[in-house]
Amino acid sequence: MRCVISGKVQGVWYRAWTVQEAEKLGLKGWVRNCMDGSVEALFAGPADKVAAMIDLCHTGPRAARVGAVTAEDFKGDIPQDFRQRDDA
């Protein structure tokens, strides 16, 4: 699933938190900041684990103020681990 998280999600350790939580769930994918102030993430793995991660994204780390999380199916290459990517 490709997700876009908006709100106060940059400058609050959202990407590092996402990496930590995704690794705990055993997910593959990536996370990065976008120029519009949102965070984009790709989550791949068992459906229940992906759903759990998307639920977590609605709250994020303590300093974040999530306004919205949108999720859509993703068709493309999936990395073999979970990592933080360069900004988009």
Rank of each mutant, 00 (worst) to 15 (best):
S38Y: 07
K8S: 02
V66W: 00
G60T: 08
Q20G: 13
V4A: 14
Q20T: 06
F82R: 15
E21W: 11
R65K: 12
V50S: 11
G26C: 01
R62G: 11
G29D: 03
E40R: 11
A41T: 07
T59C: 04
Q84I: 11
Q10S: 08
D87W: 06
F82S: 05
S6I: 01
R65S: 12
D77F: 07
G45F: 04
D55M: 06
G29W: 10
L56R: 08
R2D: 13
Q84C: 09
L25M: 14
W17M: 05
D36L: 11
A16P: 01
E40P: 05
E23K: 09
V66F: 10
R83L: 14
G45D: 12
A16H: 14
A51G: 13
C34E: 15
D87C: 07
W17T: 00
N33I: 00
S38Q: 14
I78R: 12
P46T: 07
V9T: 03
T18F: 03
F43Q: 00
C3R: 02
A68W: 14
R2C: 13
V50M: 08
N33L: 00
A71H: 10
V19A: 03
T59Y: 10
V12W: 08
V69M: 02
V31I: 07
D86Q: 12
A63E: 12
S38A: 05
A47E: 07
G37S: 00
W17Y: 10
G7I: 07
E21H: 04
E72S: 15
L27A: 14
C3M: 02
K75Q: 04
Q84K: 12
M53G: 11
D81Y: 10
S6E: 08
T18P: 00
M1L: 09
I78P: 08
F82N: 14
E21M: 15
F82W: 07
Q10V: 15
A51V: 07
R85H: 07
R2T: 09
E21K: 15
F82I: 07
R32F: 05
Q20W: 14
R85V: 03
K24E: 15
F74L: 01
T18E: 00
D55W: 10
A44Y: 05
W13L: 08
G67N: 05
L42N: 05
G29V: 05
V4E: 15
P79H: 09
A22H: 15
T70I: 07
F82G: 09
